[in-house]
Write a protein that binds this DNA or RNA. Sequence first.
RNA 1: GCACCCGUAGCUCAGUGGAUUAGAGCGUCGCGCUUCGGACGCGAAAGUCGUAGGUUCGAGUCCUACCGGGUGCACCA
Length: 557
Amino acid sequence: MQDKLIHALKRACKDVFKVNIEPVLSRPDEQFGDYACNVALQLAKQLDQNPRDIAVKLSEQIKSTEGVVSVSVAGPGFINVTISDAILAEEGFTISLHRSNAGQEILVEFGNFNPLKTVHLGHLYTTIVSSAIARLFERSGANMHPISYHGDVGMHIAKAIWAIGKDIDWDPEKLEGLKSGSESDEGMQSLKTVFGAYYAHGNEAYESDPEATEQIREVNRQVYDRDHKGVNKIHDLCVKRSLEYFDTIYDELGVSFERHYLESETAPIGTKVVKENIGNVFEESDGAIVYKGEKDGLHTRVFLNSQGLPTYEAKDLGLIELKKRDYPNAVKSIIITGSEQKEYFKVMLAALGHIEPEQAVKTEHITHGHLGLTTGKMSSRTGNVFGAQSLMDATRMEVQKAFPDSEVQHDVYLAALKYTFLKHRIGGDIVFDVQESVSLEGNSGPYIQYAYARARSILRKKSAIKGEVGELEAGERSLVRKLSEYEEVLEHATEERLPHYICTYLYELAQAFNRFYENNRVIDNEREALRLKIIEAYTNVLKDGLETLGIPVIEKM
RNA sequence: GCACCCGUAGCUCAGUGGAUUAGAGCGUCGCGCUUCGGACGCGAAAGUCGUAGGUUCGAGUCCUACCGGGUGCACCA
């Protein structure tokens, strides 16, 4: 219907005013109609005519469009259109998406947790928001390839290994002993917390103790060259344990990857790429190999350090080579990270632009803002920060309290956790109130799950049957009208890479349902058949939306 | 210092394809269960949309300057 209206308006502009313009429709406040168009206001200046007069003339033209019930001109010259109940219901009862990325191979890289480091809130944010974005693209027909990338070599690893090695006198036999650590938990549970502390210790030493700095740089070299048995053994075991731990988090979140890339794979390739382009792209400066980004309005970054070892930037070039090799048909490669990497990516991609322009063009970097906590008390001493695990645990405990003997605890927990991240527009920084995040009321994931379960309980009593849709009563119409907006919301969210549009919509939809439910009886009502159909369509949209976000629906809670 | 992001109700945030009367949740105050699931609904109080200019018939939305907060800026990732 939307396309039809746009077409009719476009034609009217051409017929009456001899202008070519692409009219844009919006969904106005319900009292004004189902669609609104401000094209008359846009044309007013160019035609030098009163916008209201233009609007009146255009509305005369589109009045007879099939499915249009009434057209009115309001305010300064808005054209408000009301469509027939039958058409509205037809749109509200079906979900038909434009497959704008049909058949396209798209890579999406996210969730880049670093071995031997704490998994932070930011990592959790990236993982949750990225899988929602990936699913959005999938809905538009794309063939998505989710991949992750982990820094198993590099200075952060050297810092942690140096600290661990010192602690166990570089005797790999003592390594297993770390598993029981000082924590009461066993095995992996303990090791993952120990790592963060060792990294923090190594990092501190690196910055404050010149002797340690030298030693850590040497360990870094040994990690790359693999010429020290003790280092190798510590490295191999610890990275393995870290990656196992990451998989438990991914599993818990219901996120899966097609492939985990490692920096140890990309380092040699990236190093080679940089070396091959010294002179034309990269240059030497203070013993390091750098890209001077100033010529692109950016800044200089080091690709190979003065030891000849690759930095993050060189490794990323290597990763891009590997991706190209593994996914030769990919038309787009999306990378999602925190916003602090924005400038970095610009420089890296600028350098790439001089080496492989087509790859640089394919790569799209999406960022999200930072996460702060309302109170400082949650982040404590170095090495024991309030990280992803703490937040997940806190949320889980809160859900357990609210649902002591429920089988749906895990699903509610996922909804509470994911929705809290997803409901905000990505890009800006957000402040995280732990109490509010686990709240099951208001604009939250569990509220929407509940709104779904309530409706499902009606449908369990009687299911919808097929039949004609007649006239809609006001309450029914509001809900159906809201349902009819779903596809537009999904498409908009995909185009803008903003999953929060879906949250806002689903919340409004759930509110619309709760309002309807409050005032309208469904079962044992003369309008039962129609209302059951509306409720069924409503549950379908809610389910579709929640699942796109990666949030499970619950039949009974 | 330079660059980017942000500044909307007491708090957390929507609204940023300019447009009809700035919205929601939490919190505060009040109302509604003979009702298909009350984790609900309805109402009230609460806003110089950071400040000052500008563009426009029209600006929370675009432009400029400034203020405030965040992030990044050479061998970390």
